[in-house]
Design a protein around this nucleic acid. Structure first.
Lengths: 131, 131
DNA sequence: CAGTTCAGATTACAGATGTAGTCATAACGC
DNA sequence: GCGTTATGACTACATCTGTAATCTGAACTG
């Protein structure tokens, strides 16, 4: 029986701290809480209980799934990184630019947030889309 | 004497509800609280006190500035839209794509979040950057 | 001058978030 | 079998956010 609220994995919003935990599991999964904690501690310096809390909240939100492994749990993402990242990107474009991607692009260009590689890659994507 | 915390306009994070208020004032300024309320009520349906609270918080955060006008206040943005939008865009690209803009673009392209107009505009921008 | 009214200030309060301590319980060493 | 330890569950708590009611004081009206 699923939580029945929202029904889709990731329908609930994931906070920034939670995102850090997701990252660890997107990078490699499944992992135990202790492993995730080790990974995450490097960048964020959180204590074990903190990471545990975030893991629980993510499970409650349906973004992670657990599988018992002896006396502990193995955590894996239910919400895929692509889905999440796509959603967040669209949210931002929607909110800040009324859904138009071009102004976002213009902003990044202006702020020199685009590397030469980015530009080359984007050109390649554009050529591909034309076909 | 300035608030001395963060010192730059907009160093404090602006929430989503607050953003709606900023939008109204970026669109036209200065405006009175009542005017902002009227504008914002259309999309969000908030009560007057709610908008007042958001205005106060934005003033406290240094994102808005007030000028007395008789017995009331006129509000204007201190934080410019461009600065805000640029910051948010960079934050997202940083967080989700390690600072690379190309993957963001790829995501938008995949999800058909790019209109024909967007594509044409981006091509134009690219040509311009080449010069 | 007293009553009404409008605007900002103060207070409220539930839910989310960041951050973490404590509890209970099951396994493992001795 | 019993103490130690690891692990998930529960509890905690300050802050931020969304949403709003109430208070207070100044201005306008009659």
């Amino acid at each position: 029986m699923n939580t029945a609220k929202g029904s889709e994995a990731g329908s609930e919003r994931i906070s920034e701290a939670e995102y850090a935990v997701m990252e660890a599991l997107w990078h490699r999964s499944p992992q135990t809480a202790a492993e995730v904690c080790d990974t995450v501690r490097e960048d964020r310096g959180w204590s074990m209980p903190t990471v545990k809390t975030l893991l629980s909240r993510l499970v409650a939100k349906g973004a992670l799934e657990t599988r018992p492994d002896g006396r502990r749990f193995l955590y894996s993402p239910l919400l895929e990184r692509d889905i999440y990242v796509g959603g967040e990107s669209r949210r931002l474009v929607q909110r800040l630019f009324g859904g138009r991607a071009a102004p976002l692009f213009a902003h990044l260009a202006e702020n020199e947030a685009l590397t030469q590689d980015d530009i080359a890659e984007i050109e390649r994507l554009l050529r591909e889309m034309k076909k």
